[in-house]
Design a protein around this nucleic acid. Sequence first.
DNA 1: GACCTCGGATTATCT
DNA 2: ATCCGAGGTC
Length: 752
Amino acid sequence: MTLKLIKTESETPSINSILDKLNESQQKAVTSIEGPVLIIAGAGSGKTRALTHRIAYMIDQGIRPENILALTFTNKAAEEMSLRIASLVPQNAVTRIWSGTFHSIFARILRIEAESIGYTRSFSIYDTDDSSNAIKDIIRNLGISTQQYTPQAIRGKISSAKNQMLTWDKYTDVYTTSNDRTIADIYKEYEENLKRSNAMDFDDLLLNMIRILRNDMATLKKYQERFKYLLVDEYQDTNRPQYLVCKMLAEAHKNICVVGDDAQSIYKWRGADIKNILDFQKDYDNPTIIRLEQNYRSTKNILSAADSVIKNNRKQISKDLWTDNPDGDKIRLVECIDEIDEAEFIIKTINSKISNENISAKNFAVLYRTNAQSLAFENSCRKHKTPYIIVGGMSFYKRKEVKDVYSYLKFICNPKDNESLVRIINEPPRGIGQQTLSSVRSFAKNEKSSIYEAFQKIDSITDLASRGKNSIKAFTDFINEILVIKSKTEPREFATQFIEKTGLLQMYKEIDTEDSIDRWNNVQQVLSDIATFFRMEPDKDLEDYLQQVTLISDIDEKDINRDQIKLMTIHSAKGLEFPVVFIAGLEKGLFPFARTESIRDEEEEERRLFYVAITRAMENLYLTYATRRMRFGEYNYQNPSKFISEIDPKLIDMKAKPTQQSIVQPRSKLHGGNPYRPKADNYSQVFSDDSYSQMPENELKLKSGDRVKHSVFGPGKIESISGTPHNLQATVYFQTVGRKKLMLQYAKLEKI
DNA sequence: GACCTCGGATTATCT
DNA sequence: ATCCGAGGTC
């Protein structure tokens, strides 16, 4: 090893200069190629840099690119990685490296190996919606009311069972109520349903990968030999199936390098097990352990703030993250009236920095806890003509017409795909409605076949009106015609022709409302997206394209480097950095997210999430919260997040917003018992629909958490306050009568 | 079967 | 506020 290193350094100046730019630990991370390696990498410690340089170094050492498998967790991380590898390694090598998310790499392998587990290589991947729809149908067929069991909730339970590798027949061993027995039944049906549809859901991509590797030794050996060198990013976020695949693949050569930071583990809810990183030393003999503790990203103030927050977690590996960077500005904490005011403040602040301080838009990121929060920012950006991009939001793909186009394509690739078929069969209307479809469905279920297979035997379905039969025959004729075209047309050309023939575009054109013009445009956009894909990847087929679309959620991904501000959830922001970061919505109930407060482990995960958010910032960090926020069409009044108070007060600068004259709240008031009383400011007068300043003062003297007394119900505790400013309601928990929702105007609650 | 209206439930986070 | 399903009418 050492000899090799010296030789390389003298011969290839490029590697030499690359190593020169790295600190000692990073160099060690780059050059420790053989055997198990554990890299504990603090936030901003140049982890991606070390990983990518490591790959460049490996290739320089003569390791063949196709023997390298680099796995990441999210698409964002995968993309960042590929981009940076590309700048270090010759192009012909880059494309030979296997690098991507667990799901996309596994899907790629599964296409090759599909037949050995009873799938065809054209299997569909069901996204969350497809799964929920399939489950909804199952629930209906089992005659269970959808009230008690929402499809989405069940999908979640089944998914987490799968993440724990709990099969349907073992489900009731762990979960034992009668509800759970019903869930197990649905789970079973769901699995059969997927099988019949030649489809896998997201979790199956991981589980089936395990099946393939366990299936026979030859296959396992094949992939062990192909992937002689494994790199796993964000190892703290791997769940059980992901962990097992890594273990199996690394078994032969033990060349596995994992990188992680326990403080940034934020996917426990998806089955991630922090033990995987903590137990690495048990799993692999005598690993090289490297700690990256110098932070290159953030100012001292930002790093200290992050540190003061994460200190409140009990469970963690102790780490000494330090930086040579300057102190920098204090952290700005800003109170806003509502989500509109918050968005206006943030976007206006960004705009003024863009024009006055000459910082370009791409340097700004607005981070939030939930996707729903993006709307207000989007509106403000549009209003002020600020270029923006919502990263990772599914908005485009969730549109009906877009999903329909993909369903058409998915169906034609995999005619067994029931969910796609159901979506498109009557879109545009073909006279095949619920009635017709449900008799075919039950026929198909009896035959243990897919719906489309049942279409082939349409004449044997007795309880079907001839009108329905004729419509179905017309549809199968249409599909057969399309299948012929597919076999002799290039994918790109085929997609365009096919969608043209479906009549979707025609339908939108004929309707000719503003809405349908949008839809028409969106379909066109999908078609041009397809064209772009095949221009870039001429050797791939439609299945490859659809797989990519299903596993990547953002069509604007390619625009990520444009000069525009970034709006995203904190989960999406993981692994990224920005000069100026805004963390919005720091309110109780929102962040930390409701429900999690009472559960210590979950609260710790929320805190790690806040830690991740803070450490995205390089130079400036803004924290904002709103005193009321629209939810379910009603305002909710909340106190600031407890996380704010965990930041060392010395690091915080709480000022009024630029146009506000009078609010400078001392920190002590933030979490004290004083009722908070906001004042009107220019933002609210201009942008809020109802003027907050006119709110009768006395109604806000109460807030959630207060103990109150009611003339009839006696003492109680306010759980939440909601409603419109002129019609406020409090949800109060009384010892005598339990939970009551009262109108403050009339209830005459007395504070005690 | 298509279209309408009404009522209820719904909101984490990613693949 | 908005999306979805149920139930009614044409």
